[in-house]
């Protein structure tokens, strides 16, 4: 029974993890803005998030007896942007784009936290019979 109750929580948890990973990668990109030859990385998880939402979440199981849990196939994917050169020194960190990404990601993270909080609030309301 509780497996269903925490479905949304599991999904949001995965979203938070991916968003935190994205923050890590952006921090690293901005830290290396003056490193010659450095190539920026990016994290994409929104697309896999959406795909997972459409599919309904299921755990990737290698054996039939594995316990099922939701959202386990959702993860952030780190890709290295190797093709472009933004400057003479071979570095391709675009500081403006990175800053915009950072702002977006922070808002996204905060939104997920709020959703998670309201999820727990709902559960608490149900447990307390609305009281």
């Amino acid at each position: 029974m509780f497996g269903n109750v925490f479905n949304n929580v599991d999904v949001l948890h995965k979203g938070l993890d991916a968003s935190w990973l994205k923050n890590n990668v952006i921090a690293n990109n901005i830290a290396n803005v003056d490193t010659p030859g450095f190539k920026a990385s990016s994290v994409s998880f929104e697309s896999s998030f959406k795909a997972a939402l459409g599919r309904g979440f299921s755990a990737k199981k290698t054996r039939a007896k594995h316990i099922d849990f939701s959202g386990s196939d959702m993860r952030g994917v780190v890709t290295l942007d190797n093709g472009t050169a933004y400057r003479m020194d071979g570095n391709n960190v675009n500081i403006d784009a990175q800053n915009a990404e950072l702002a977006k990601n922070t808002i996204y993270y905060n939104a997920l936290v709020q959703q998670l909080s309201s999820e727990f609030r709902k559960l608490r309301t149900a447990i307390n019979e609305g009281g």
Binding site: L16, S19, W20, N23, I26, A27, I30, A31, V33, I95, N99, L102, A103, N105, T106, Y109, N110, V113, L116, S117, F120
Partner: peptide, 21 residues
């Protein structure tokens, strides 16, 4: 730029502490 990132990270971590509050 790096101070900005630091503050954003800090803000996210502080926000995460509010989960379930």
């Amino acid at each position: 730029a790096n101070v900005t990132v630091l503050n954003a990270t800090k803000g996210m971590a502080m926000k995460a502490l509010e989960i379930g509050r």
